[in-house]
Amino acid sequence: MSTTPSPIIDARGLWKRFGNLAVLKGVDLSVAERELVFIIGPSGSGKSTLLRCLNRLEEPDDGSIQVDGIELLSPKTDINAARRRIGMVFQSFNLYPHMTARQNVMLALRKVLGKGKPEAGEIAARALDRVGLGDRMEHYPAQLSGGQQQRVAIARAIALEPRVMLFDEPTSALDPELVGGVLNVMRELRQDGMTMVVVSHEMAFARAAADRVVFMADGEKLEEGPPARIFGEPQHERTRAFIRQIDRH
């Protein structure tokens, strides 16, 4: 499955240090088009840092990243142009509190893609419809539940028609009853063929939907493979311990 000739994400030898602490120790990650890759691991394993390096919100100290053929770390790359092809969804939503749901989605459409107001408004409406919030377009973030806010954040990213979507613990800040709505939207994206990299603790979702699961610990990729193998017969002692612990919950 991951043997497609030219992967859409190809990160090699990524190093990231915060002071004396190495958070990423030469990690490789390649993702094929239309693939859904789950990254799991204990907290502090570097999985979020890895994800944030993939659109250069975190600047790696060493290594290379290619996304959709663009050399992300090259000084010649227009990072803003590159980023709009890489959608990102955050744990804390990060919606703009002074804008309505629709304005949140429209902002980059207008200012980055240069679309006119009517066109941007239409695209935003479609994106919000797609995440099931067609009736909440004129609401401000403060008037929406956490789950709805996160779906607006997803709409904000997909409206730019990214080639890849990155999800950084998208459901961790949500009350349990609101998680389902967000996962449904992610499932639909997957069915439409979106390439996705997800850092999350939603193991049931990973089992059911992921093409590949990557297990990280202490800044290294310990093993990866189809969910059935990683969850069913993990090779590494750390992986076994981690999955045992998760399954107890």
Binding site: R83, M88, S92, N94, Y96, K111, V112, A157
Partner: peptide, 18 residues
């Protein structure tokens, strides 16, 4: 203003000044 606001905006391709 929380750092996440910067990150969210930059992740959609908006520049620093924008």
């Amino acid at each position: 203003v929380p750092k996440g606001q910067w990150e969210a905006a930059r992740s959609t391709g908006l520049g620093f000044l924008q």
